[in-house]
């Protein structure tokens, strides 16, 4: 059956029946969303010493932060046991990273994840780390589990480079998802059956980027040392939490609410339209650990 073309009028229709919400595109509610999910747990962990120097994480501290976040998230004190609730020794695990040249996931974060997957009993040759090559990578092709890790940053097409957005490399024509501020990125997760396969989402907040400028969509000036990680099984909840922090930073920096050039509405629509997870803070159980100064949330 041919799919229905979604036009601007479909959004206007929704706005017309929910006038209070109509001004906020991200709050659009389209029928056929799945039933609301239960409260999602998100762990935000920060450490004042997480960076050795500009954009250079301290590997040991990052490992400690990840361990504490994961044990808290799954409610298991032993790190290996905690990871074993996510990954089994027979799994083939793809770590979906992000190699954006100015702001990558970082080797330190990738390595901290890989170490714990090894500890969980997965053979090294069954673990892959990749970004742009995931569609051809044999590990990712046969992966039974995925760990999704990327830095948080503002983004030209989607408003925010989010955990949801990080899976765009699984589709052959990424640009097909760029329309309407990447509103329907969550469909990738559902269509490619990535939702259940993804065991953990890690939004790297060591140096989040809060503003986009120029062809590179990047300037050192617009990142700050937040020194945090956001960890959750729910990508939407992780992204929603990260977005709140970025928005708060923008307000602090600009002295007023300066909307992002591209609204990050794909995060809220991932809940309201696609039922991928929860974006509404009221539905998120946020656990804050570690350094509190400038937490912004």
């Amino acid at each position: 059956m041919k799919k229905k073309t979604l036009t601007r009028r479909d959004f206007l229709k929704v706005a017309a029946v929910t006038p209070v919400m109509g001004a906020v595109a991200g709050s659009l509610k389209i029928p056929a969303a799945e039933k609301p999910l239960q409260k999602s747990k998100v762990v935000l962990i920060r450490d004042e010493n997480a960076l050795l120097s500009f954009k250079k994480p301290d590997a040991e501290i990052v490992q400690r932060m990840l361990d504490e976040a994961v044990t808290t998230l799954v409610g298991e004190k032993d790190v290996t046991k905690a990871w074993k609730t996510l990954i089994s020794p027979n799994d083939i695990v793809g770590i979906k990273t992000n190699i954006m040249r100015y702001l990558p996931t970082t080797f330190e974060v990738e390595n901290a994840i890989k170490k714990r997957i090894l500890d969980a009993g997965v053979a090294e040759n069954n673990i892959g780390i990749d970004d742009r090559g995931v569609r051809k990578n044999p590990i990712f092709k046969k992966a039974t589990a995925l760990i999704n890790a990327r830095p948080a940053r503002t983004h030209h097409w989607s408003g925010m480079g989010s955990c949801i957005k990080n899976y765009i490399m699984f589709v052959p024509k990424a640009f097909e998802y760029h329309g309407d501020s990447c509103a329907d990125l969550a469909t990738i997760w559902k269509d490619l059956n990535l939702k259940d396969k993804t065991k953990l989402n890690i939004l790297v907040m060591l140096n989040p980027q809060f503003h986009t400028v120029g062809p590179h969509s990047y300037a050192d000036k617009y990142i700050w040392e937040y020194k945090g990680l956001i960890v959750s099984k729910d990508p939407v909840a992780a992204d929603s939490t990260g977005l709140r922090i970025i928005e708060a930073k923008r307000k602090e920096y600009f002295g007023e609410d300066v909307p992002m050039k591209t609204p990050a509405k794909h995060i809220r629509l991932a809940e309201t339209r696609h039922g991928l997870g929860v974006a509404d803070p009221a539905k998120i159980e946020l656990i804050k650990l570690g350094w509190e100064d400038g937490i912004l949330i």
């Binding site: 979604l6 036009t7 760029h178 329309g179």
Partner: peptide, 16 residues
């Protein structure tokens, strides 16, 4: 290019 149109003014997800 309809992607650019949609960036500035969202019309439709397809190139109508």
């Amino acid at each position: 290019n309809h992607l650019i149109l949609n960036y500035h003014f969202f019309l439709a997800d397809d190139n109508i």
